[in-house]
Each structure stands twice: as C-alpha cells, then as structure tokens.
C-alpha cells in the first residue's frame, strides 16, 4: 500500500505552539486561515504582522513571521509606519473589536481612508475577552456583559457598530468583506476572503479589511457549540455577511 499522504496539516506560518485561547474560541481558526494564506501565497518571509491588545495580543507567539505588538487600538498606525518605510513587505494588523472599534476607531478609519496598502483582520466577537467580558462597541442589543449586566441598552449605549459597512462608505478604494468562522462552511468562505485580501496587498492594489465574526464561549457564558449557534442566530442577522466593497467595483453614486 502506498504511504498515506497528509491532506491537512499545520501551516508553516503558524508556530507549533499551544495557544492560550479558551476551548472553542475561534481565534484559533482565524489564526490558521491567515497562516495558511501566508503559506499558499508564499508571503511568510516578507510579512510583518501587528498584534493588538486583547486576547490576541499573544498572536506574536503564534504567527511564524516578524511581528510587532501595538498599544491598544494603535495597530493601524504601526502598520502605516511599517508599510510606508517597507512598501514591498506584506503588513497585516490582527485586531479585536475593543482594539479596533473602540479605542482604535480613528486609526482604522484614517488608515482605510488614506488607502494604506496593508491588510486588517478584524475579529468581532461582540465582547472584551482579555479583560473578562465587558461590553464592546459590537456587543449585541440586550446582550449581557459585565459592564451591561442588564443587557446592552441601545438607548444609552447605542447600537453595535457594523465596522465593515461603516468603512465601506469611505470613497478610497478598498477590499472590505465580512465573514464568519463559526461553522466549516463559513470558515471555508472566510478563507477565500482572507486570501483575496492578501492577494490585493501582494498586488499593491488597495487597503484590504476582513471582519470575521468569532465566538467567545467563556465570556458569552456558553459552551463552544452553543456559542456557534448564538453567533448564527443573533450576530449574523445583524452583522450581514458578504462583500461590502471591492476595488474592482467603483462606488455607486
């Protein structure tokens, strides 16, 4: 019998590390999708990743490429600095919803509006994970967190910010898509979007941004599989998946 051929293995761009993420946290899947993309497009050796502050701050221990770790919310500014002085390197920021949609809104909006040629992977899990489950700008209405214990009240805390749609309003060309990784089918589609994003950067085409809906079992107070279901039932209807903006399609006036 011929020797078995491996058809699924750890990508080289993902270190062989035991991650600190909670069981069932889909950060791990997103890390793998980014790493697989770096492998498949042959970008690993000229990539510089920027880690945020949040659960995924430690992604600098997991991505097997040069990494910088940013102050909270400042990753797009660091990425701008790197990309401007090393325009032929591949630069990406990996950020959570507290990092990007709260303290870092100015940085992300202006990086996108300047059309900085780096890629952002925005992980939206509707909560602050690292600090133990506080309300985030993307926390859902009536979702209970430690800082909205009676559920998010949209009258005082406003509605969740649909970042991908907000950024899509900017006129500067960009590739913006929202995907999810809570089921294999969506994960396969998410990988296509992440791959497309890095493709556009490799072609020095435009800013690329992929918002990835992700779970947080620990702080949602659900099992991993219940979290998958909650994401499907509650988040997906609000955070509509799909392509929001493409450099190939000019904005419709």
């Amino acid at each position: 019998m011929s020797a078995p051929t491996t058809i699924f293995r750890r990508p080289e761009a993902l270190r062989d590390a035991f991650t600190h993420y909670c069981p069932g946290c889909t950060h791990g899947i997103i890390h793998r999708l980014v790493a697989e993309t770096l492998d498949e497009l042959g970008l690993r050796e000229r990539t510089v990743g920027i880690a945020p502050v949040g659960c995924s701050v430690l992604c600098y221990n997991y991505f097997n490429c040069d990494m910088q770790e940013a102050a909270h919310g400042r990753a797009p500014a660091l990425a701008t600095g790197v990309k401007r002085v090393l325009p032929d390197r591949i630069v990406f920021t990996y950020q959570g919803d507290g990092d990007l949609a709260s303290i870092g809104t100015a940085e992300i909006i202006h990086a996108a509006n300047r059309g900085e040629k780096f890629t952002t992977i925005f992980v939206n899990n509707a909560i602050y994970g690292m600090t133990g489950g506080q309300m985030a700008p993307t926390t859902m209405p009536n979702q209970v967190t430690t800082t909205c214990p009676r559920g998010r009240d949209v009258n005082t805390a406003g509605w969740p910010i649909p970042v991908a749609d907000v950024l899509a309003q900017l006129r500067t060309p960009a590739y913006i898509e929202r995907v999810a990784v809570h089921t294999p089918r969506y994960t396969v589609q998410a990988k296509r979007a992440i791959r497309q994003a890095f493709q556009y950067q490799a072609e020095n085409r435009c800013y690329s941004f992929v918002e990835v809906l992700s779970t947080c079992p620990t702080n949602w107070g659900k099992t991993p599989n219940e979290s998958v279901q909650w994401l499907e039932d509650v988040m997906v209807p609000y955070f509509k998946l799909g392509l929001k903006k493409s450099p190939d399609r000019p904005p419709v006036d």
């Binding site: 491996t6 058809i7 699924f8 750890r10 950060h27 899947i29 089921t183």
Partner: peptide
C-alpha cells in the same frame, strides 16, 4: 471520508488527516 471538515473547524490545529491513494 477524509472530507477535512473536522480539521477545518478545529481552533487548535489538533487534527491531521491522511489518506491512502486517491481522495
């Protein structure tokens, strides 16, 4: 069946799949 769905959904890259012959 070697469809890889389990490996795709694993957050910790804990699953590896190998096949014999065609797939």
């Amino acid at each position: 069946l070697g469809c890889r769905i389990c490996a795709v959904t694993c957050p910790d890259v804990a699953i590896e799949i190998a096949v014999h012959g065609c797939r």
